[in-house]
Amino acid sequence: MTADTISAIIVSGLVLGSVYALMASGLSMIWTTLGIFNFAHGALMTLGAYVAWTISNSAGLGLGLAAGMAVSIAALIGAGILIERIVVRPFYDHRDILLITVMTTLATMIFLEKGIQLIWGARLKQLAPIIPGKVQLFRTTISAQETLIIVVAPLLLGALWLFLRNSRTGRGIRAVGQNPDAARLIGIDVSRLFIITFAMSAVLAGLTGVLLGSVRLLTPDFGDEPLVKALIIVIFGGLGSLSGTIVAAYLMGVVEAALTFFIGIYWAPSIVFLLLIAVLLFRPQGLMGKVAR
């Protein structure tokens, strides 16, 4: 194995891992706080990219990428709130909330993807890169946009970690996840924090979409593959552990990059799944997981 190979694997693993970490941390936050999976998370990523495209691209409004990102973030805050209100909130007191919300969020995913197809059509689109050009990283040349992803993801995740650890709202969100009844009794408005959690998670998904939308091509099912990967990463990293999710995301990125390099793009995903199943057989709680809530 040459140094060039190692460099290529690490760099492409970091790009993948960063994308996975951004996607999975939003899902993980929702699981930890509300105890449900949001299957519409991938469609939110797609929506974020399409909204940014319409605002920024010259075939749309042509207002530039900064405006595109701002509108996209605003739209996703709205979408996150709507999803929480319409398809999750009515079932909070239901004892089968986990299964019911699997159905309602899957339905939302289909609704959003078909809606996107109706509005924007099936023709491939691509966002302009935030930073154009190429960058040499170690011994590998990648696009500046991919380098940006590698740099921005840890910054965003670090900011998320600081928010959850130090801010009053962030601490409140953790408290609600650990014991909603006790949280209520110290005066925390639990349902308000549920909405904030959903909105933040949606924004994370949308930002992932905007960052990735100039590296990959936009289609209405743009978010499907990242959603599936993110779901697996949340389980693999350990339910209820944000740090576990992030470690698992980067690990999975590097392993996937290595497998793609050595055995090719067709078999790599299957082998990744096989490895995950093997790990979960010996560590059912995941890498850093606690006993499921």
């Binding site: 601490r171 953790r174 408290a175 650990q178 014991n179 006790a182 949280a183």
Partner: peptide, 8 residues
């Protein structure tokens, strides 16, 4: 028997 917030 409040178990409060286990990880805090």
């Amino acid at each position: 028997a409040n178990r409060l917030f286990p990880d805090m």
